[in-house]
């Protein structure tokens, strides 16, 4: 790693996301292809889990990448590439929520500690699920039932592998807020999966 702008370390590895993005900025289309192949799955699943509809997820997914392509000329390595990418995705998701009939989810307005005590519906409880596949499916169901902000924190951790600080940076919140969201989300998922884990 070598120091770069704003005391951010830039990886020397030629295959690092930031280097690939800089190469794409200079006109190397193959660098973008590698970046895209690396991040398309996690980003798509992040959007899919957040909006719940494949068609909407595809639309948002396309918008995010097109925004990134359009913003390539102004790209500077001030943070990890992943943070930048998911910041764009988060903003697009918020726009989607605002444009939808239900508006911005309440969970983005503030933390909701009382949700930890809300039990999942009985029919959704995985009492009789014994194989791992069904447990995974159950996990997705439970994930879908989480408030959006908590679910987003989980997805940014699991899909993008972001740290607490990076999640806070992406979502525009504080580190403590991210911790709170993750804490509640994991507790609810564990309880939903019961003793199956």
């Amino acid at each position: 790693m070598r120091p770069f702008q704003n005391n951010v370390l830039i990886p020397i590895d030629e295959d690092a996301d930031e280097i690939l993005m800089l190469r794409y900025q200079e006109g190397d289309a193959s660098a973008f292809t590698r970046l895209y192949a690396r991040h398309k799955g996690p980003l798509y699943r992040y959007l899919l889990r957040q909006c719940g509809q494949p068609a909407t997820a595809e639309e948002l997914f396309q918008d995010v990448w097109l925004k990134l392509i359009a913003a390539r000329t102004g790209y500077t390595v001030q943070a990890r590439f992943m943070t930048w990418l998911y910041r764009i995705a988060h903003n697009r998701l918020i726009d989607y929520y605002r444009a939808s009939n239900r508006g911005l989810p309440v969970s983005y307005a503030g933390d909701c500690p009382e949700w930890i005590d809300v039990p999942a519906p009985l029919e959704e409880q995985p009492e009789h699920q014994d194989d791992r596949r069904r447990q995974a499916e159950r996990l997705l169901v439970l994930l879908a039932e989480l408030p959006e902000a908590q679910r987003e924190a989980v997805l940014l951790k699991e899909e993008a592998g972001l740290s607490l600080e990076e999640i806070a940076q992406v979502t525009g919140t504080g580190r403590e807020t991210v911790k709170s969201r993750l804490r509640y989300a994991l507790a609810r998922l564990r309880r939903g999966l019961g003793g199956a884990l």
Partner: peptide, 10 residues
């Protein structure tokens, strides 16, 4: 467990 659900792709 969550990683086993990584079959969704664009």
């Amino acid at each position: 467990l969550y990683q086993t659900t990584h079959d969704a792709e664009p």
